[in-house]
């Protein structure tokens, strides 16, 4: 009863206001504590400074050549986004294709699945030295790490989705004169689509984690690189701005994927 009363009673305050309240309070508190001196501004920059730095980082004109955080945000963000797109794209193509084969064909399962299960428990970060030795300090290292990391959730979820195709739908298709090859495309894949999208979403999240890891150690550009490099200059304002930049881009790409999924899965019972 109480929760019902609470649910109906809060109609007076608009949802947007209610949802923004806590973040706003936290930010104000943060600003206040730094100003008063409770928090040391050498270690924790106030939000106002972070915002100013961020603004300059995005829109500033390169007057002081020595400062890498003037007007360079867009190219850093683009570098990171391109790496995520390449790695995630490759993982999506390979992961869905391989997952479908493994889920559908016994032979593919026997040949490929053990290898996947063998490699999957290795944390992707453990691949970093190998990636650098193999690909050098280039974008390819980052794309490899991102691709590998995103590949596992995609392939595993695709496999599970294809395995769980209701047998009665396969029977229905066969009864209607559909050949086995056709059934893979006309029944198994669409039926597995909800699982596939789950895998893609997980993979995209992993991709954003790994682009930062890769740029911290293996590539010398992008938001991850800016984040790590600013640490050497003790530019905590840049660190915080970079953190929220990555978070924002990750959030944005996830929303886009969710939009696509909502459209592609408009037929599904619960999505």
């Amino acid at each position: 009863m109480r929760s019902v009363a609470r649910r109906t009673g809060r109609g007076a305050v608009p949802a947007a206001v209610r949802r923004l309240l806590t973040p706003v309070i936290v930010v104000l508190l943060w600003e206040g504590l730094v100003r008063v001196g409770v928090l040391d501004r050498r270690f924790i920059p106030p939000p106002s400074v972070v915002l100013a730095t961020w603004f300059v980082w995005i829109f500033g004109r390169g007057t002081t050549i020595s400062d890498p955080y003037v007007g360079t945000w867009l190219s850093s963000a683009r570098d990171s986004a391109v790496r995520v797109a390449l790695g995630f794209g490759a993982a999506a193509v390979v992961g869905v294709a391989l997952g479908t084969l493994v889920g559908w064909f016994r032979a593919a399962e026997d040949l490929v699945d053990p290898l996947i299960q063998l490699l999957r428990p290795i944390p992707i970060t453990a691949w970093v030295p190998f990636a650098i030795i193999f690909f050098g300090f280039y974008t390819m290292s980052a794309v490899f790490l991102i691709g590998l990391g995103a590949f596992f959730p995609i392939v595993v979820n695709t496999t599970a989705g294809v395995r769980q195709v209701p047998p009665i739908l396969v029977r229905a298709a066969r009864m209607l004169g559909t050949g086995s090859g056709e059934i893979l495309f006309r029944v198994a894949l669409p039926a597995a689509l909800p699982s596939i999208f789950t895998g893609l979403r997980l993979g995209l999240g992993v991709a954003w984690v790994l682009v930062i890891v890769a740029e911290m150690v293996a590539v010398k550009s992008g938001l991850g690189y800016a984040l790590w490099n600013s640490y050497y200059y003790l530019r905590t304002d840049v660190i915080v701005a970079a953190m929220f930049s990555v978070g924002g881009l990750g959030f944005l790409s996830d929303r886009i994927l969710v939009r696509i999924a909502a459209h592609a899965l408009r037929w599904a019972e619960a999505f």
Binding site: R171, A172, E269
Partner: peptide, 18 residues
């Protein structure tokens, strides 16, 4: 094997939901 000369109406409908 199954074939389109024998149509089956399943108790569970078995429609393709997509």
């Amino acid at each position: 094997r199954p074939g389109p000369d024998r149509g089956v109406v399943f108790q569970e409908y078995a429609l393709f939901p997509w």
